[in-house]
Write a protein that binds this DNA or RNA. Structure first.
Lengths: 363, 363
DNA sequence: CGCACAAGCGCACACGTGTGCATTGGAATC
DNA sequence: GATTCCAATGCACACGTGTGCGCTTGTGCG
């Protein structure tokens, strides 16, 4: 429609193309993408030979291969991966299910993941599921692209959805999610150990009024961390050596932590040691405490975060936190996908990555 | 190879499928994706009718459409967009050229852009060009996916590359880049006005030793901001009322700014008012000044940033800065792409988005 | 010189969809 | 009741690539 001259003119030219002798016909430039047929004609071979040359088939002589490759280069040939996928019924796209880029740790993880995906010869196709109601639809829609695999970094996919991916041999990896999805690999950092480490360092600091701050309603990871924390302080709690208060904020970000600080701190018997479900919350809490309420950190209030995002190490915060490694998370994710895409049959696994206490200046 | 039972079994079943009478044959589940042919057979119509139903062709009766849609739903049919693209020679993918996710402003912009792309019915296909040498190859590789458009948010594409996209009617938008690409739309924030605003507020603050800090070698945006800054202070500079020092750091991020602070500040005659090419640098500079050198901000050192990233507004920084709107940038980008993809012929344009001074506490 | 064998190459089909055009069925008009 | 017309639907081709199978060409040996 937008191209009056394109295809018709060209096929016409093709079927009528008698003038094989004489000067080589000037390449028809008009709107037409160079296909393997063009390369074949130009190099004087069959189209199938072009395909085999470019895919490194061993049955092709080196001379022919060189000639074809050179011709392809000269014509600016770009293989049509859509057509290839049509044939092979698989693309080299990997679906990335996320929800926005406002969570700093997730961004760091995606940064590594995108690099790793590309490094492995695939391409990331991002879908945003900020609206949880659209999760199922969005994930299924990814199947429309014949994706090679899918990584879920946000949201809780409906468990039954896994079958659709299993049936099509599309591997699924859930990262830092609950492992409810049938047939999916699940990779988590060690939330349990993280909660314990946080408990240990806060108990050792001598604080007595402990708290755990996380988003209202919680998330899988956050809840796991909080439960481990509570379990770890259970003896001291039972003996009355310390008290514990669960705290919640309205959003899992800086502002959520900041508002929670204004709300819960500065009162009589307010907690003097708070473990936050994630660093971003901790930073907001810390700023509210220091700048709005005049509390000294860590003297009046000790804070432990989780994730070790870049900002946590900045001089303005120096947050003590539990570090998980986005690089290792990404490497493991893509490694797992590659195995399954290559056809290896491995059983679903629940992988746990170690975490590490990073001592800075907030405890 | 990984599917012994799949295709062969199914086509066999198809060619032999006599049993049209009697009970409806149980759907063959094995490894086989549901195609429009399956829906057609199940609904008792032709495949072309299925296609027309799902694409909203008006020539289809409502009764037929409802039946087909219901059947498709029941079978879990997902259209194969690869096959559709094969036919239409266009996909609904939009290439996003970026380099990592470590630049906070770019992340904010991408966040809005990805949402806008999805909202407009497209899908973002991300490529990372952290290695500038691979820029041309990577951009051309995007053509293999028959993308509908491309947005460049990082790097400097070789000018000649534009022709490849033009020839295939693939619109290109450059965001906050030099406008060197033939046939591309270019969208920039108003770097000139930004530089001027920074100059005005710093001059008005009474500081006398001005500086501009940016990454060594500079970037298109950074240089434009710096030049506008210098031009705006030219009169005072000429009259000797103020001095000016260009400063550079090794990386365009927090650490670059931090290291630059250690290097340039705290000395005799060090600048007492610095305009930074971007907020992220400014935050590092600010922390070095406050926490390492004991300078008071803004008393000993005034700082103006650029971008107004989220962190700049946090209580620990309260950075005075020049704000550009990632949301408007994204909206404009996708709007421009949509027009061109829809076939509208509009002339290349160089769009400038307004910036705004955000007064906080560092001047 | 004739034959066997192997390597290199081309033919033709398949992948799943959109769409121009022919065909069918029914309704309306004379 | 016959004819015309329109709406609804089916047929068949095209999109660009991968690949099994058969054909051609060249080489070595008897």
């Amino acid at each position: 429609m937008s191209c009056q001259c394109g295809h018709d003119g060209w096929t016409g030219e093709k079927t009528v193309s008698k003038p094989k002798n004489g000067t080589v016909a000037a390449p028809v430039l008009r709107h037409h993408t160079v296909t393997s047929a063009d390369v074949a004609r130009e190099a004087g071979v069959a189209r199938s030979t072009v395909s085999r040359c470019l895919s490194g088939d061993s049955r092709i002589s080196e001379a022919t291969r060189d000639r074809v490759v050179a011709t392809a280069e000269r014509l600016g040939y770009q293989i049509n991966k859509i057509a290839r996928s049509m044939n092979t019924r698989k693309s080299d796209l990997i679906g990335l299910v996320t929800s926005g880029l406002s969570d700093p740790f997730r961004v760091e993880f995606l940064d590594h993941l995108i690099a790793a995906i590309q490094q492995a010869g695939f391409r990331p196709l991002v879908i945003d599921v900020s609206d949880p109601a659209l999760m199922e639809t969005s994930m299924l829609n990814l199947l429309q692209y014949q994706i090679a695999g899918i990584v879920v970094t946000s949201g809780s996919p409906p468990p039954a959805i896994g079958q659709h991916f299993l049936r099509r041999d599309v591997p699924v990896v859930l990262v830092n999610r609950a492992g409810l999805l049938e047939g999916a690999d699940v990779i988590n950092c060690d939330n349990i150990a993280g909660g314990q480490l946080a408990a240990e360092i806060l108990l050792a600091s001598g604080k007595r009024r402990l708290g755990f701050l996380n988003m209202r309603g919680g998330t899988y990871s956050g809840n796991a961390r909080g439960e481990a924390f509570v379990a770890a302080i259970a003896p001291e709690l039972a003996s009355g050596a310390v008290s514990f208060t669960p705290l919640s904020c309205n959003s899992a970000d800086y502002d959520g932590g900041f508002q929670a600080g204004l709300k819960f701190l500065g009162k009589e018997n307010a907690p003097d040691a708070i473990f936050c479900g994630k660093d971003h919350i901790a930073l907001g809490l810390m700023d509210a405490a220091r700048f709005e309420l005049g509390l000294k950190v860590p003297d009046d209030l000790a804070i432990v975060g989780f994730d070790d995002i870049v900002a946590a190490g900045q001089r303005a915060y120096r947050l003590t936190t539990i570090a998980q490694s986005p690089a290792r998370l990404a490497a493991l994710t893509i490694g797992r996908l590659k195995q399954r895409i290559a056809g290896e049959v491995i059983r679903d696994e629940r992988l746990i990555l170690p975490v590490e206490l990073v001592r800075r200046e907030t405890v």
